[in-house]
Design a protein around this nucleic acid. Structure first.
Lengths: 300, 300
DNA sequence: TCCATAATTCCCGAAACGAGATCTTTCATT
DNA sequence: AATGAAAGATCTCGTTTCGGGAATTATGGA
């Protein structure tokens, strides 16, 4: 039995979907299917019942779920326990607003429980500013959005900074255009029936992606907001289209009454300076990897 | 991190030797070295300090050891917990005297703790008789010694029975000739200065191996004993050479004062009927695999 | 009935793994 | 101090496994 199989199993159990789980753990669906079947074969039990396109846990799957959680938690604890120098002091982490909202709560809770002695300084900002701050040693690491290949060469300064840093993908976000309820379906930016696009500050990669998309067929002003709550409130007034990842939208108290249009998948990268990693960074990095693609609500 | 790496780590920690650990887990030394180094690289810590030819756990290795034990125990528990039908009733297990003495105590304790509802019937006997009993459905499974390739074709009936059964290697024994203290070193059977060879009943594979070896250069009668304690007592009188695996000798209260000569490695097989496995057998099989090559004294 | 979506299966190239041979070091023996 | 045996590490090679993409099947909705 392999710990990565458990990670995959947890993702499928959490998402109740092979496709979504595959995205969450950064693999391809066929691979997820294979690993799950392998796991089932190894245990001699079927973990999911496939009725139609739904993956629901069987009774055995439910019991195995709690063990999978305990096993991965214990493995993480083991890793941290053998760390030669216990991390302490300060770790300065930069993060996008969206990541802080949707992905970090689980990881930060875990990290704080494991290393109460580390004081974590969280800075919110746009990807571009965060990257610069890491290069300038104002931050130890940052979680930023990776500009898609189609936008390469647009912001040479940003890309130069990225090249100076070590990076590793940790999350995959499904970036959306969020439309007022009742707005007709959208195939391209030409179908937009709004007066502006609501986003965060300039330098925000999500904003740039949305502007790029919109520019292809229409000219719309971008209105700047301070938070995703503000964006969504603005969308609700009816004359604005918002930009945010699905994971953030899912947290919002507007469950289903908004229209969305997919802009595509965007990777979230953890970036840090090469050869200059504080003790606490390695611990943070490990906790982040272990928490990746995991549905917190299922962790006991 | 892979559970098999933990198994290997536990073996090395228990044996304090790569070579011995390799035998215990049925692998080749180079492989064990590689997996340990891999594990160390993954954790970013060195688990053993190699001073000379000794492998001793570092401080980090010690802490990791307790985690490795807990992880493997939890994984085993998970396996058993998802078993669709909880085993119950009776399981009839046949075993060689030697296996019962040295290998089974750990496994049986574990099994009994996990499945108190299963009543385990243990039958001691010679490999050949045990195999026949399994074929005849007098036993559900048995632990027997695998005759080495060099002895193939000697006992056609035995081998026919084995072919009718499913089998899987679980232990590797280092078979010894045990000589009275003070007996000169032995290169071949011609060097024996004793009047007889002490072994268990006919049909015992170890006995046949020893007789085969002795026959090559001398003719010695075999004296039959009822137990390994009896054999060793007989050896201590000075005129007999005993046959037993090292794991049994290690249990005896004559720590170092006996001469030994290696007859070679002999595999212990778990055999069972194809397509006819009681619920409890699968559980037993699993516990046996998890316990294999593990030093009980280190399991918390 | 047709279409979109999701899971599975199949296949191929890449990476990992295990076994054996070789090398190096260490320890015991004389 | 020299020598031989033994143990661990390293290297290479053949095999297996693994992950990704394309094709296939099945399901649920329009």
């Amino acid at each position: 039995m392999d710990l990565s199989s458990l990670e995959i199993f947890l993702a499928v159990a959490g998402e109740r979907s092979v496709t979504k789980a595959a995205k969450a753990v950064g693999r391809v669906p066929s691979n997820v299917t294979t690993r799950i079947r392998q796991l089932e074969g190894d245990l001699g039990v079927s973990l999911f019942s496939r009725d139609g396109k739904k993956m629901t846990l069987t009774r055995e799957g439910e019991t195995f779920l709690t063990y999978a959680n305990r096993l991965t938690a214990l493995a993480l604890e083991a890793r941290q326990a053998v760390r030669p120098l216990a991390p302490s002091g300060t770790l300065r982490v930069g993060t996008m607003e969206s990541t802080a909202a949707s992905r970090l709560p689980a990881a930060l809770t875990q990290f704080n429980w494991m290393w109460p002695d580390v004081s974590l300084h969280l800075t919110m900002g746009a990807s571009r500013d965060l990257a610069r701050a890491v290069v300038a040693d104002m931050l130890d690491c940052a979680l930023i959005a990776c500009p898609p290949k189609t936008m390469r060469g647009e912001d040479a300064g940003f890309e130069a900074e990225l090249k100076a840093l070590e990076m590793e993908p940790v999350f995959v976000e499904d970036l959306l255009i969020v439309l007022p309820s009742g707005h007709p379906a959208v195939k391209s930016a030409a179908d937009l029936r709004v007066g502006s696009i609501a986003a965060l500050e300039p330098g925000c990669t999500y904003r740039r992606i949305a502007e790029n998309w919109a520019r292809k067929s229409s000219i719309l002003p971008t209105s700047e907001h301070g938070s995703y709550h503000a964006i969504l409130a603005s969308v609700a007034t009816g004359n604005t289209a918002g930009v945010m990842p699905r994971s953030v939208l899912d947290l919002m108290p507007w469950p289903t009454s908004v229209q969305t249009h997919q802009l595509g998948l965007v990777e979230t990268l953890l970036v840090y300076r090469k050869n200059d990693r504080p003790r606490a960074f390695d611990a943070f990095h490990e906790v982040l990897s272990a928490t990746k693609g995991r549905d917190v609500r299922l962790t006991n």
